Amino acid sequence: MAQIGKFNTLEVVSKTEFGVYLDGENLDTVLLPKRQVPKDTEIGDWLNVFIYLDSEDRLIATTDKPLAEVGQCALLTVKEVTAFGAFLDWGLAKDLLVPFSEQRKPMEEGQKHVVYLFVDEHTQRITGSAKLSNFLREETNNYQPGDRVSLMIVNRTNIGYKAIVDDLYLGVIHNIDVLQPLRPGQKLAGYIKTVREDKKIDISIQLQGQEARDDIGSRILARLEENGGVLGLGDKSSPDEIYAAFQTSKGNFKKAVGGLLKQKKITLEPKRIIQVKS
C-alpha cells in the first residue's frame, strides 16, 4: 500500500509531455514531474519515489530525498514564520509546516529544531511537531541495562539532555554522564543505564562497570596492535585527550589500564602505554 510521506516503489502507467503517472495503488495515480523522470523511463518500469502534497494540495512524487520521512525526527532550520506557523527546510521544494499548536516554544527564523513528521489526519498534509512526547513513548520495558541503542540529541535540560532512543522513545542523559558538549540533532551510539520504576529511560553514552572496562581494554589492545605496540596516552593524559581517542571518561580509562597492567599485557608511562609482547 502506497504511503504519503514515505518512499514507495511504483509502476509507471502512462507518459505525458509534463511527466509520467505512477500507479499509486490506494492513492490513485501520482505525477512524477518531467524534470525528475529518469532517462529512458518506459511504461511498466518501477521507480522509487517520495510522495507528498504540492502547494495546491495535489499528490506529487519526487526522486529528491527529504531530510526525514513521516514517522522520523530530524533537526530542521526555520525558513519563515507566517500566520499559519513556522515553515522549515526539509530538503524539498515545498517547506514543512509546523503549526503554532505543534511548537513547544515560538519558533523564529534561522533557528534549528528537532521535529517529528506526521500526516495530519484532516488535511493529509505532512506536518512537523516539536512536541515529541505526543508521538514518542517515554515508558518502556523493552530494554535492559547495558543494551546498545542509537540516539539523537533533542535539547538541553536542567538535569542533562533529552534524547530520542532508537527513533521510538525519549530518554535522558543526566549531567553526570555527559562527557562532552552535545548538540541538538547530533546522532551517536549510547547505552541503557537504567529503566526506572516508572519505566522511563536513563541513558549513558558509555558502558558501565566491568563491561565498560573490558570493552575499553580490548580497544586499547587493538590500538596498540595498530600502532606498533605504543599508544600516546598515559596516566597523565587529559580527560579530553582520552575522550577523543576512546569516547570514555578518564576514570573508566584508568580502570581499564589497571586491568591490563594486572594481566601484564602492558607497561605504563606518564604519556605512553607500551604493549608487552608475549
Rank of each mutant, 00 (worst) to 15 (best):
L59K: 10
T77C: 10
A93M: 10
V276M: 09
T29I: 14
I60F: 00
P99T: 09
N26V: 11
P66K: 01
Y116W: 12
G146Y: 05
E138H: 09
L10W: 01
K34H: 11
I173R: 00
D214E: 14
A2P: 08
L53P: 03
G110R: 05
V49S: 00
G110C: 07
L221T: 02
D95Y: 11
G91N: 07
I242S: 02
Q208R: 12
E241Q: 13
K34I: 14
G258F: 06
I216H: 01
L224T: 00
G146H: 05
D177H: 10
R223H: 09
G5D: 00
E102K: 08
G128E: 01
L76Y: 02
K199H: 10
S129M: 07
I51N: 00
P181M: 08
K277T: 14
S133L: 14
Q72Y: 06
V230C: 09
I266F: 04
T16S: 15
P181H: 09
A222E: 14
D54A: 08
P106D: 08
I60L: 07
T77V: 12
I126D: 00
T63Y: 03
R196I: 08
W46K: 15
G229S: 09
L117F: 06
V12W: 05
E241T: 05
F100P: 04
P99D: 11
L231D: 02
F84E: 15
N141P: 06
S204D: 07
Q208V: 14
Q3K: 13
I4L: 12
S238Q: 09
V172R: 00
E197D: 13
V98D: 02
Q206I: 10
E226C: 04
A163Q: 02
G44S: 08
G251I: 12
L47Y: 04
E139R: 13
G251E: 11
G24W: 01
G24K: 00
L96V: 05
E42H: 09
G185C: 04
L32D: 01
T127P: 02
V13A: 06
S278H: 15
K105T: 13
G171M: 00
A244S: 11
V30E: 00
S55N: 13
I43V: 15
V230I: 15
V12D: 04
